[in-house]
């Protein structure tokens, strides 16, 4: 009997209608909470104090730069997991002019060499599954501008 129903022309439209109907019913419930995409953000619970980030950048040998990432309420670790707990533990992604250049598993990281000119260095704290940490005050990140002279320091 099932086979006969399957062979009937109405089977596929029925399944499509059920699928689309379920989607139309369920999607507004999930999307209605307005949360940021969970594939990108690790949202900390409100009772956890969001970390703070400040950056210090110093010239290093061979045109490289040493970025010191000072954080509060955050623990660096080099252990990555597929699905992290919502906790301020993880590493940092270092971006120069918007492009990711390094992952920092400890508070000090070397980047560069950088081309002469102005550069904006952004550091975004990430959870152990690489998602960006989002506290109640927003994205946890630090930014600093660096000017690289023509002659390497």
């Amino acid at each position: 009997m099932l086979r006969r129903f399957y062979m009937k022309a109405a089977f596929a439209p029925c399944i499509l209608a059920i699928l689309l109907g379920s989607v139309v019913f369920a999607a507004p419930i999930v999307n209605g909470n307005g949360r940021p995409p969970r594939a990108v953000f690790l949202v900390l619970p409100d009772d956890i104090e969001p970390p703070k980030v400040s950056l210090q950048v110093e010239p290093f040998a061979q045109g490289k730069y040493r970025v010191q990432i000072d954080t509060t309420e955050f623990q660096f670790t080099d252990i990555c997991v597929a699905q992290a707990q919502a906790a301020p533990i993880g590493h940092a992604h270092v971006h120069v002019n918007g492009a990711k250049v390094a992952s920092a598993y400890q508070p000090v990281v070397l980047i560069g060499p950088l081309a002469p000119g102005e550069h904006v260095i952004d550091v975004v704290l990430r959870g152990q599954d690489h998602r960006a940490i989002l506290g109640r005050t927003g994205l946890v990140q630090g930014t600093v501008e660096v000017f690289v002279p023509q002659q390497p320091v």
Binding site: P36, P37, A39, V40, F41, H95, G98, A99, K100, D122, V124, H130, A132, L134, G138, L139, Q141, T143
Partner: peptide, 13 residues
């Protein structure tokens, strides 16, 4: 998602 720049991630949040 990793392609997004920090400013784009901030906007996305």
């Amino acid at each position: 998602a990793w392609l997004l720049t920090p400013s784009e991630i901030e906007e996305l949040s």
